[in-house]
């Protein structure tokens, strides 16, 4: 019975983490799209190394 309860609890935890992960990713996707539109292709200097962790060469 204990094992059954434990496995139920762990199922719930996994379900909750999946929900949190999906919520976060959906939010990031929306924000990134919104910001990209607002920036209209202009990436400020401070963010230019963020894409790949190296210098942006143009």
């Amino acid at each position: 019975e204990d094992i059954a309860e434990e496995s139920q609890a762990s199922k719930e935890l996994i379900a909750q983490r999946l929900r949190l992960l999906e919520e976060w990713r959906a939010w990031r996707k929306a924000v990134e799209a919104e910001l990209a539109e607002a920036r209209d292709g202009v990436i400020p200097l401070a963010l230019q190394s963020e894409e790949d962790g190296s210098e942006v060469i143009e």
């Binding site: 999946l18 992960l21 990713r25």
Partner: peptide, 10 residues
């Protein structure tokens, strides 16, 4: 990585 991150890679 958490198991769920492994299950649902980005």
């Amino acid at each position: 990585l958490y198991d769920v991150e492994r299950m649902r890679p980005e």
